[in-house]
Design a binder for these strands. Structure first.
Lengths: 189, 189
DNA sequence: ATTACGACATACGCGCCGTATGTCAACTCA
DNA sequence: TGAGTTGACATACGGCGCGTATGTCGTAAT
């Protein structure tokens, strides 16, 4: 069964990414997984449940990747910026775009309330928390700062991908994001 | 006919805000306006067209309001921050939330490509442009900066509204937004 | 006066979701 | 070991909502 669940999830993920939530049809990815809708409703409850599962999966992957990038960049402010840049680049993936950035909020509501608890958001929250405790960042509200940072990064990604030449916009977006992040830095030292 | 168009728009706006794009039914707001779906399809083409019109209307109102707030706050950096704060407050309106922030991107794609040309985005773009020309802001990419600022503000609003007590989150969000904005300030003077 | 046209209303089909019901294996337990 | 139970699906059905094709009626044009 775990096998089937995974195949359904995979098929659904592709369909949601390709057609968007509204136009993706249950029968299609059930068939693609070699099953029927019965299996879907049994495993995921309804269409939203299935979608939430897909979102959770992608979110987890993004958080893991961001964490890895952050770790590689040390543990200071640079790591935070690196994580943000990583989010921007990851969100260039059409799958992430369509599912997490566009349909996700519309179907599941604000990301901070997602069932997957938004691992992605949690990750930068921890990073901000550390930096704030170390006095590197201004003591603004923790959650607000984390939410705005990820929001800005993902917004940036959307902008990058919406352009005709993502390659040229990407560095501009990363640079702008870095500047904004620096606004959180505590004055001098 | 202009009269009818306006009534349909009004009814649709209420329905979209209350139920979301997916659950809002054409017949309902046609009936609410005292007409049938025929009138809708005649005036707006299809459901997306109608939705786009609603989004354009709200977007215009928001931009106008932001402009007014900005003007009242002078023409310096403070005005930019004030505009951002204004966006955050405006986005506390459930109508704006549901229509512009949640369903908008899902149905119409990235805001920077909206048919309404996103007056709201244009407005801050101009503000940033002035400040950058005056050397108040760092010379980062204009569009990127504007997009990230509005994105951050609207993201912040979503976060504020998602909480149990919006009143307590609002000042935190505005404060965090102000900090981020300051990251764009050119070093000293 | 006939024609053309625009603003709607009406009618219809089609797709898709959810749910109710059926099937069949594996497993339990006396 | 065989009757009962449960869980993982498949199948069947109803209903709703969108889009479109078609009809109607008033008004302007010539």
């Amino acid at each position: 069964m775990e096998e089937n669940r995974a195949r359904l999830l995979h098929a659904a993920r592709r369909a949601f990414a390709a057609k968007g939530y509204g136009d993706a049809v249950m029968d299609d990815f059930a068939a693609e997984a070699g099953l029927t809708r019965g299996a879907l409703y049994h495993s995921f409850g309804d269409k939203r449940g299935l979608f939430a599962a897909v979102v959770g999966q992608i979110d987890g992957e993004m958080a893991a990747r961001a964490k890895a990038v952050g770790a590689r960049a040390g543990d200071g402010f640079a790591a935070l910026v690196a994580e943000g840049a990583a989010y921007i680049e990851m969100a260039l993936d059409p799958e992430v775009q369509r599912i997490v950035l566009l349909d996700g909020p519309a179907v599941l509501g604000d990301p901070s309330k997602w069932p997957s608890q938004n691992a992605c958001l949690e990750e930068t929250r921890r990073a901000v928390e550390r930096l704030m405790a170390d006095g590197v960042l201004k003591p603004v509200d923790l959650d607000a700062a984390a939410r705005l940072l990820t929001g800005a990064a993902l917004t940036a990604a959307l902008w990058v991908a919406a352009g005709d030449d993502p390659g040229s916009r990407l560095p501009k977006a990363v640079e702008a994001f870095r500047c904004l992040s620096e606004g959180l830095l505590a004055p001098s030292r």
